[in-house]
Simulated assay, not measured.
Amino acid sequence: MPTTRRAFGALAAGAALAALAPTATAHAATRRRSLIAHDDFCHGLGQWATELQGGGTVTASRGTLEIDVPSGATVWFRQRLEGPYLLEYTAIPVSEGGVNDRVSDLNNFWNATDVRSPHDLFATPRGGALDEYDHLTTYYAGYGANHNTTTRLRRYVGEPGVRPLVFDYTEPLLVPGEPNRVRIVSDGSTVQWWNNGRLVFDHTDPQPYTSGHFAFRTVWSHFRISGFRVWRLTPKQP
């Protein structure tokens, strides 16, 4: 059984282990749903906004969003999303000898709002460095971050230098060349991040962020991403 990297007390530790345990249910996939957004990555970056700390390339063609960057990079989906929804994509960390082929940092922001321009995320310029996102209220998953040694969930509160940690694991981590089939559930107080059918983060937020923007985030890495879909979930049955 995986262990947390920090002590959160018996209750938090138990919740962390439960989040990583296999599940027999199909979670949000069992709910009726309708497609509200998608990108087949065949027609460029019209639906995306990129923020690059130190250059690199972000392209969308032939069914693949390719992020190949030497430092921090955030790729925002321009459409604001409202919950409840299920978001899914597949990401492959590239390890083929390229200068940026460091297997690390399959990260996401979701339900993000910038407190400096709460009605328009893109009205405030950002340059891709991580501390520039401290003004967000958002969830942030870092899967295989810190040179592929940590997997964490944070809940940003819009204050510089404050990035509250919800879960902190030593595994699961990225495997070079292997697909990561990610699902993010935003369903009221339920906040989940799945990978290849495994529930990695399962958080019940008493003051949830229920709408905002989604982004791919990475640092000094190379990813190929496909199958981006967002589904509206029907309300839960009483």
Score class of each variant (00 low, 15 high):
Pro2Val: 15
Pro2Ala: 13
Thr3Arg: 15
Thr4Gly: 09
Arg6Val: 08
Arg6Tyr: 10
Ala7Asp: 14
Ala7Gly: 08
Phe8Leu: 11
Ala16Thr: 06
Ala19Val: 07
Leu20Asp: 01
Ala21Arg: 04
Ala21Asn: 05
Ala21Ile: 11
Pro22Lys: 09
Pro22Glu: 06
Thr23Ser: 14
Ala26Trp: 05
Ala26Met: 08
Thr30Tyr: 01
Arg32Met: 00
Arg33Phe: 02
Ile36Glu: 01
Ala37Val: 00
His38Gln: 12
Asp40Gln: 07
Phe41Met: 03
Gly46Pro: 00
Gln47Asp: 14
Trp48Ile: 05
Leu52Val: 09
Gln53Trp: 11
Gln53Cys: 13
Gly54Asn: 15
Thr57Ser: 14
Val58Cys: 11
Ala60Glu: 05
Arg62Leu: 11
Gly63Pro: 07
Thr64Met: 09
Leu65Trp: 04
Ile67Thr: 08
Val69Gln: 02
Val69Pro: 00
Ala73Cys: 13
Ala73Val: 03
Trp76Val: 03
Phe77Gly: 02
Arg78Asp: 06
Gln79Gly: 07
Leu81Trp: 04
Glu82Asn: 08
Gly83Arg: 01
Pro84Trp: 04
Leu86Asn: 01
Leu87Cys: 08
Glu88Gly: 11
Tyr89Glu: 03
Thr90Val: 09
Ile92Glu: 11
Ile92Met: 13
Gly97Ile: 07
Gly98Val: 08
Gly98Ile: 08
Asp101Phe: 04
Arg102His: 06
Val103Thr: 02
Leu106Asp: 02
Trp110Arg: 04
Thr113Glu: 10
Asp114Met: 05
Val115Trp: 04
Leu121His: 05
Phe122Thr: 02
Ala123His: 12
Thr124Ala: 13
Gly127Trp: 04
Asp131Gln: 12
Asp134Ser: 11
Thr137Phe: 05
Ala141Phe: 03
Ala141Trp: 01
Tyr143Lys: 02
Ala145Met: 07
Asn146Trp: 13
Asn148Phe: 06
Thr151Cys: 12
Thr151Ile: 09
Arg154Pro: 00
Arg154Gly: 00
Arg155Lys: 15
Pro160Gly: 10
Gly161Thr: 08
Val162Gly: 03
Pro164Asn: 11
Pro164His: 10
Pro164Val: 13
Leu165Gln: 15
Leu165Val: 09
Glu171Ala: 15
Pro172Asp: 11
Pro172Ser: 11
Leu174Tyr: 05
Pro176Trp: 11
Gly177Tyr: 13
Gly177Pro: 12
Asn180Lys: 09
Val182Ala: 03
Ile184Ser: 00
Ser186Trp: 00
Ser186Lys: 03
Ser186Ile: 02
Asp187Gln: 14
Asp187Gly: 11
Ser189Asn: 12
Thr190Trp: 09
Val191Ser: 00
Asn196Trp: 11
Asp202Met: 08
Gln207Tyr: 06
Ser211Trp: 07
Gly212Ala: 15
His213Arg: 09
Thr218Phe: 02
Ser221Arg: 03
His222Trp: 13
His222Pro: 09
Arg224Phe: 05
Ser226Val: 01
Arg229Pro: 05
Trp231Leu: 02
Trp231Val: 01
